[in-house]
């Protein structure tokens, strides 16, 4: 098992290198720079700033020194928030985004798995079509539409929930979590329906029924484990996706999370901030994928067995 994890971590290094290189080059290709503003800045000030941030060096030298910093876990100083490092900015925004992503994940799993399982129990009946059509709608509806819609209905018409902020008013976390989670709930519903449908047609489900087990036990004990394997495999990338994809929701609901910094950084050409967040997200995606794989192995006794013997 340990060797499996180690080898996966080693495989991640080239992936991250490619991500860094491509992002580094792309950001530099974009027109404008961190210090080009509307109002005229004296050229000597710009030169001084560029020298301070090593922007006067040749690009390959900048690249190498950036890699050197990264190796020490240092994302460098922010260009647009003077005096603050990218590390600090990420550390400040991450807990909020992580909390949002966590709630969204809960919403997604709860709604998704229930809808998928219910649909799979009676395929090709209204009990299947209804949740699956809703799931299709959920996939198709982008969060920048879903968010304002929810705000309109629950915040303005019904006045049940606050429409913005984070941790200031009671219940202000509900709408963002639902907005962010719905799309993933829809995916999870489709995955769990597919997984459950396949498992429910397996011979061992017939065996379980032949033993005279109540249908509840057949579904929850015998079918669910195998049926949810595709969902588990999806959870890793999904969680990473929730973290990195939260900026729309954060913008709609005025949440001071990491996603908003990310978007602003892109507009501001805050090179180090863009790079830092990208590398950070890429690392998260790799880690969560690995985590999902480990959980998938742990669920499946056959694979668990193979891995434990290779220790």
């Amino acid at each position: 098992m340990l060797r499996f994890i180690l080898s996966r971590l080693l495989q991640a290094i080239p992936v991250l290198l490619v991500v860094i290189t491509v992002t580094f080059l792309l950001v530099r290709c974009a027109p404008g720079g961190p210090f080009s503003a509307e109002k005229a800045v004296p050229p000597e000030v710009v030169r001084a700033l560029e020298a301070q941030y090593r922007l006067d060096q040749p690009i390959w030298q900048q690249y190498l020194s950036y890699l050197g910093d990264l190796a020490q876990g240092e994302f460098g100083p922010s260009f647009r928030y003077p005096g603050r490092s990218v590390n600090e900015l990420i550390a400040g925004g991450l807990p909020i985004t992580a909390e949002l992503a966590f709630y969204a994940m809960l919403v997604a799993i709860l709604i998704g798995v229930c809808a998928g399982v219910i649909a799979a129990l009676r395929p090709n009946t209204p009990q299947d079509y209804l949740p699956m059509s809703a799931a299709m709608l959920g996939i198709c509806m982008p969060s920048f539409l879903m968010g304002p819609l929810l705000v309109l209905v629950f915040g303005i018409w019904l006045e049940w929930l606050p429409v913005s902020g984070w941790g200031e008013l009671a219940g202000d976390k509900v709408l963002p979590a639902i907005t962010l989670g719905t799309g993933y709930a829809a995916y999870i519903a489709r995955l769990s329906r597919g997984g459950m449908l396949e498992v429910m047609s397996q011979d061992y489900i017939r065996t379980a029924r032949a033993k005279g087990l109540p249908e509840r036990v057949v579904v929850l004990k015998h079918a669910l484990r195998g049926g949810l394997i595709p969902v588990v495999a999806f959870l890793g990338p999904a969680f990473a996706g929730l973290l990195s994809g939260s900026f729309v929701v954060e913008t709609i609901f005025q949440i001071p999370g990491l996603g908003r910094f990310y978007v602003q950084a892109a507009f501001n050409r805050d090179y180090t901030m863009i790079l830092g967040t990208t590398v950070f997200f890429a690392t998260l995606i790799v880690l969560f994928n690995l985590l999902a794989d480990i959980i998938a192995v742990w669920i499946n006794p056959k694979m668990r067995h193979q891995l434990s013997r290779s220790r």
Binding site: Q202, Y204, R206, G226, I299, P301
Partner: peptide, 12 residues
């Protein structure tokens, strides 16, 4: 049942 390879639940 016929096929003992598939008739037992692999997860239990």
């Amino acid at each position: 049942f016929q096929d003992p390879m598939t008739s037992l639940n692999p997860y239990l």
